[in-house]
Design a protein around this nucleic acid. Structure first.
Lengths: 146, 146
DNA sequence: TATTGTTATACTCTATAACTATA
DNA sequence: TATAGTTATAGAGTATAACAATA
């Protein structure tokens, strides 16, 4: 079998394994894996607009909005009107949200350790590099419709 | 930044890019990316039980059942009672299902070409190998709860 | 005119638990 | 007792389209 035809399924299998393990790990904290990604994105760069947050995740603005409603209900994020653009709203982590994210990051540590433990250091670096290359190649912006 | 902490997000970004491109590509055929995976699994090994099908995808039996109901409605798969186990049902592609899968495989060709085109041959092989290693390390069976 | 976000809506996937039938 | 599948149920993510407010 050619590697070409195996890449999609290998990628899917690895991601789904990660996703399911993360769901199970975060469930006791009342957080989904995708909500974790949202919190992590905010932890990296706070006070993003919803649009910018959606772009970075990446996800759809209306999807992000639905997620924010849930996270705001649990007091993990807060939305304020943008200082200079009255259409936009900025999103940031609350104190409880920051605390929760630190907990989750710690809770996920052993999953990350497990993944990297199956690889040599140079292999881990290679994997990240190749995944980045593949993701970029699939970027919809740069793709003819054919 | 250590590669260790980047692996999960790099994996997610690459998978989501693939998933979204696949959804868009298959949508005109009335098929979702996950339904494609189910059809592909059947195309590889026909007449599986629902349980075995779920194990190979991998997915949950009740999820698979929901998907099968949709695909059966569209006459792409058919379920029969198992020849020796009256509890079980075997699943197979209909003629229309096989035809549809061939169409979808062809429709997805340029996506696979695009992914592999961003890599050298040995890199593609390395990627598949490393993804397999990572997926295996996350296999829930072999994991202490901690 | 274009952009940000909201709302309504619909669909798919996901998964648990209780259940029936069978091994 | 264990297993295969069904059913009911619930929740989450996904995404399109129409809309209001603002740039």
């Amino acid at each position: 079998m050619m590697a070409k035809n195996e890449i999609p399924m290998a990628l899917r299998a690895a991601y789904l394994a990660l996703h399911r393990r993360s769901e199970a790990r975060f469930a006791p904290h009342g957080i989904t894996a995708d909500q974790f990604v949202l919190l992590a994105t905010l932890a990296r760069g706070d006070a993003l607009t919803q649009r910018e947050l959606a772009r970075r995740m990446p996800s759809d603005p209306s999807t992000v909005r639905a997620m924010l409603v849930l996270l705001e209900r649990d007091d993990l994020v807060k939305r304020d009107t943008h200082p200079t653009d009255a259409r936009a709203r900025t999103v940031h982590l609350t104190a409880a949200g920051k605390r929760k994210f630190r907990q989750l990051w710690k809770a996920g540590e052993s999953i990350r350790a497990q993944m990297v433990g199956s690889l040599q250091l140079h292999e881990a670096e290679t994997l990240v590099r190749l995944l980045g290359r593949v993701a970029e190649s699939l970027d919809a912006e740069r793709v003819p419709v054919d």
